[in-house]
Design a protein around this nucleic acid. Sequence first.
DNA 1: GTGAAAGCGCTAACAC
DNA 2: GTGTTAGCGCTTTCAC
Lengths: 345, 345
Amino acid sequence: MSRATIFDVATRAGVSIKTVSRVVNNEPNVRETTKERVRKAIRELNYRPDRSARNLASHRSHLITLIYDDPSAYEIPSAGYVIRMQQGALRACRDNDCELLIHPCRYQDKALGAELKTLIEKVRPDGIVLAAPLSNMPNIVRAIGATGTPFVRVSSGRKKNGKHYSVSMNDRECSAEMTRYLASLGHKRIAFLTGHPKHDAVKNRFLGYQDGLQESGVSFSGDLVEAGDNSIRSGEACAEKLLSRKRRPTAIFAANDDMAAGVIRVADRLGIKVPDELSVAGCDDIALAQQVYPALTTIRQPLAAMAERAALALIEHSRGGSDLGGEDVFAASMQIRESTGPAPA
Amino acid sequence: MSRATIFDVATRAGVSIKTVSRVVNNEPNVRETTKERVRKAIRELNYRPDRSARNLASHRSHLITLIYDDPSAYEIPSAGYVIRMQQGALRACRDNDCELLIHPCRYQDKALGAELKTLIEKVRPDGIVLAAPLSNMPNIVRAIGATGTPFVRVSSGRKKNGKHYSVSMNDRECSAEMTRYLASLGHKRIAFLTGHPKHDAVKNRFLGYQDGLQESGVSFSGDLVEAGDNSIRSGEACAEKLLSRKRRPTAIFAANDDMAAGVIRVADRLGIKVPDELSVAGCDDIALAQQVYPALTTIRQPLAAMAERAALALIEHSRGGSDLGGEDVFAASMQIRESTGPAPA
DNA sequence: GTGAAAGCGCTAACAC
DNA sequence: GTGTTAGCGCTTTCAC
């Protein structure tokens, strides 16, 4: 037996299909008693509107596409990042009768712009959530913009961007806060590990680090900055350099958690006690942060909330609602755990 | 300017829309020259078939739904598991003009069966990929089966299951292999940590452990088995019990990587050297396995390949192809890293 | 090989 | 408040 259609419901309720449509879509101008009759028929027939028919007639797809850099599950252990973005976007979609399509891709791909364009033209989503770091790459933003499909950029760092609505995080402020926190613990030699230069977020964190030093009256020194590439291994390499010095830093703040984990590993190998002899702080609050020992003090990004807001804005827009403009800034929060403590005497 | 329709293409190519449809869908009975003319028009107009219209007319949704237990990104660090399943399913979908809808959910939910039923009736996917551990829960399988939508179970352990096609892994055999490997290193007291009883996979691993012991001529002892619940913390608890004994085991094989990581952590705290004094092996090859020190010897599941096969089978089936029956078994592979070594003298 | 016509199940515009 | 009528852009059926 095939599914009931709007016509079956109308017949059973003794009304026209238009009235059924009104009830289903919560449109006004239906008498309460009529509404109830229609609802009853719907229940009895277990009627569900057909998505394809509805989409075809309404010129909407009820689809939101989430585009992000593929964590590849192994090389880069940022699977949690992706999962949290998905969770947020899914929440918005489920609450609003939309579905989420995920599109992991490789930011290194030369032809990524074209790939995304094709994808979008094929799928025709009502909106696109573009996650960092893709959201900070001009060519990608341009390619997506060219399709005319509404999109929202979700990024860590704030960034002036003319017309687009975007959702971002107070990354810089929060890094400054972390730095001030370390300084408040008595640390004077606070080192910083910068991350992959392609990722804007880590640049903002570096700026925040400098802000924090200044605000704490600690002078900045280029000697205390090492360049990593976001990987655990690069964190280890940087830590080896920093910790083998005669006057080594008493605190190391890494632009992401993976590098911070690398620092902890090296400290362990060198017999340097964390946090007694060395404080270590990271950024992102990935799952690993709680798995290393000692558990990592870090900065937690409200990724799910950001993705949810982005998807919601798109859905509202697709309903003919608000214009997509301006920017929403979310606050990250410090997660103080075991890897930071008072500076050694 | 709105999108070109099949009608525009037909006009431009000087043929009927049916012919365009034939070309687009690679149907036979079109002269090569006609085909070429149509293709040219398609290119010139940048025509893309409208999914909704196509779906409506063909009674297919070109949607595959992947249903899995939500890793919740934090409490359970199995985000990598999910990402890999997604990758496999996505590959199948992209190659076949379908889209993937993800549906994370909570296996604990009392009303999960009903939730999934509603979801499926609303979305009407062409097929469903059901991941473990949901794929081993009879009430879930029943609820999904009741919708009449074709589905494939992806599970670790093999399991006789009447009618359904399913994709599984030689979990038991591989656990036996790992156990034999440990025995071959000279270990006689090989402990095992069982996992969450709701997860069938870990039961199979326990059986495999027993098989392996027997095959190696090592006798099984209940004393060497501790019950965990898949979490790092439970792994720590079990390890504390096992390692505080007078005659402690020289090897510990945990039913998953998280528990194995817990074991390593405890060994570290107790000053027991891994692998010199204690060998540790896990199962799953999650990202954490390579992040702990020493890196964990474990069993790698071909999750992406399994999910891909499952999705492919569903897509073919939805095209009127093969019946969904039988079972495909994939081989897991041992990943020998640093946490295992010869038994101490 | 090709085309004409009839839907698919819904929404939108407008009439009543 | 409610119903009528056209489509939306495709696939399907069947005729040629």
